[in-house]
Simulated scan of single mutants.
Amino acid sequence: MQNYFNYFTEIEEHFQRRRGTLLLLSTLDWALIETWREAGVPLEAVLRGIDKAFDKHEAKPNARTRRVNGLAWCAQAVMEAAQEMQEAAVGMARNTQADKAEQQGFESERVAAWLMRGADALMAAQLRGLAAETAQEIATRLREMAADSAACAGDLEALERNLLVLEEKLMTAIVATTGEAEMLALKEQSARELAPYKRKMQVAQIRQIEQQFLHKQLVDRHKLPRLSLFYMSQA
């Protein structure tokens, strides 16, 4: 569980500062940030990577005429910064689970309320067929978890893994009930937005971003809740 309540906001603002002008992040950019968050890339590593990418770009003769127009431009530098930080962190002591929970504000009451909010949102979602059945099933499970004080106050890492499994189960059902034409349109949009950056990314990273892009688009269209505890700070 990362101790970054404003992970997305910090990255967006730092990117805008380095670019020098306001540029709203695209769906692709948000999907990329989600891949970093899910991969456990520290916020500091992302910010360092952004700085490194812009420093390299600004050293070029044509820097003033060619702006960095997307966060994906910084992807390789971010992964390099994360690797450097990981190597530097070897042997460092970690905080205890209790300390982390207290620092991050994951009190049992807040966790229970978050789970109930997710359950209510799933029940209100306009879904059909398998997707609707899965949403109802997950909503019931979330309410059971919210009523279990031990689950809310216990191992947050285990709870987070459980929530991510439930979210993945929901997305699988959503994808299965999405029409062929809509899926094709979403994948084509993803391919267009990724095209300028593909040569700077590894194949595995491209596939992960494409999946995140698709999931984010479907979540937004169906107004679905995010279940991860990470999003508690964004609510």
Rank of each mutant, 00 (worst) to 15 (best):
M1S: 14
Q2H: 13
F5A: 14
F5W: 09
E13Q: 15
Q16M: 12
G20P: 04
L25E: 06
L25Q: 08
L25I: 02
T27S: 14
T27E: 14
L32H: 07
T35M: 10
T35G: 05
E38V: 03
L43N: 12
A45P: 11
G49L: 03
D51V: 00
T65L: 14
V68W: 06
G70R: 04
C74Y: 01
Q76D: 12
Q83G: 13
M85A: 14
V90C: 06
R94Y: 14
D99I: 15
K100P: 00
K100M: 07
G105N: 13
A113G: 07
W114V: 01
R117W: 03
A124V: 01
G129E: 11
L130A: 13
A131F: 02
A131I: 05
A132W: 00
E133T: 14
E133W: 07
A135Q: 06
I138H: 00
A139C: 02
T140Y: 04
T140H: 07
L142K: 02
E144F: 05
A146E: 01
S149L: 08
A150G: 05
D155W: 07
E157W: 12
L159H: 08
R161H: 10
L170A: 10
M171E: 12
T172W: 07
I174K: 02
V175T: 06
G179K: 08
E180N: 06
M183V: 07
L184Y: 07
Q189L: 14
Q189F: 02
R192G: 01
R192E: 13
E193V: 07
A195Q: 12
P196C: 04
M201S: 09
Q205L: 14
H215D: 08
K216G: 06
R221T: 02
R221P: 00
H222Q: 09
S228C: 10
F230W: 11
Y231D: 01
